[in-house]
Design a protein around this nucleic acid. Structure first.
Lengths: 123, 123
DNA sequence: TCCATCTACAACCATTTGGTTGTACGTTAA
DNA sequence: TTAACGTACAACCAAATGGTTGTAGATGGA
């Protein structure tokens, strides 16, 4: 690992990793308002309470949900900005990718020039 | 696992999982055009050729890149539509989530007839 | 032809994941 | 106070991940 270092890599890792599980995506869908407690959530899935708890923790560390205590229960709410952050990560990816395409097209177009267009490895 | 069944779960899983690694995201950034062979790519990372090969395989099974053989080398190109698919998955997630929020807000609104102006939405 | 290169893939290993059960603790209701 | 509920967390386990090395098959160039 540790290839990037430029963007907030770990955060993006956690974001996409959290999204890469159907149960966790379903939790996100359900928790628009902070109305669902962890145990209420857990009742909806064919797995133990502890397992759902872990999924919520993963979502929480990815910044996709927050928890708010109400009495003895813990209400889960998905962060409205979180998906926007994921979208931004995709945008960044796409724009970097597109820029590279353009740059390469440009290089190919003016390919005649001898002037070492190199020096543009990564980044 | 197997909670959804409604959307094309496995594909989305593979998509986000593929995106949840900095090296793989970097490969995506680089491979806008099909100009980079696997070994060329591998030279850019502090890991073995086989490791990079595996990353490319993960990206390929997620539909994020395609490979095209040219002579003895295999050129990698990111699929322009792939990120769009990821974006759509996010959209689906957000819309489902938002629908749920609206539905709940609706219920709350018509439940709070007389008093209880409370329900003070934080923030 | 022979050799270097590029790729594919198997075998192996350490760590992480996703699940389980069990225990402990705070809070609410009887 | 006591019992039930909701949560937190540790310990454990099987399977998947991310990495390694090694071997073998194609391809291209000398």
């Amino acid at each position: 690992m540790v290839v990037d270092g430029l963007d907030e890599t770990d955060g993006v890792d956690r974001l996409f990793h959290a999204l890469a599980d159907a149960t966790r995506r379903d939790i996100l869908r359900r928790c628009g308002r902070g109305e669902l407690s962890v145990s209420r959530l857990a009742a909806a899935y064919p797995m133990s309470f502890a397992a759902v708890q872990k999924h919520v923790t993963v979502l929480e560390r990815a910044g996709l949900v927050g928890k708010e205590r109400r009495g003895r229960e813990q209400l889960v709410r998905t962060d409205p900005d979180a998906l926007a952050r994921a979208r931004r990560a995709l945008d960044e990816l796409e724009s970097a990718w597109r820029a590279r395409v353009d740059r390469m097209s440009g290089l190919l177009t003016e390919a005649a020039g001898p002037g070492t267009p190199a020096k543009g490895p990564d980044r």
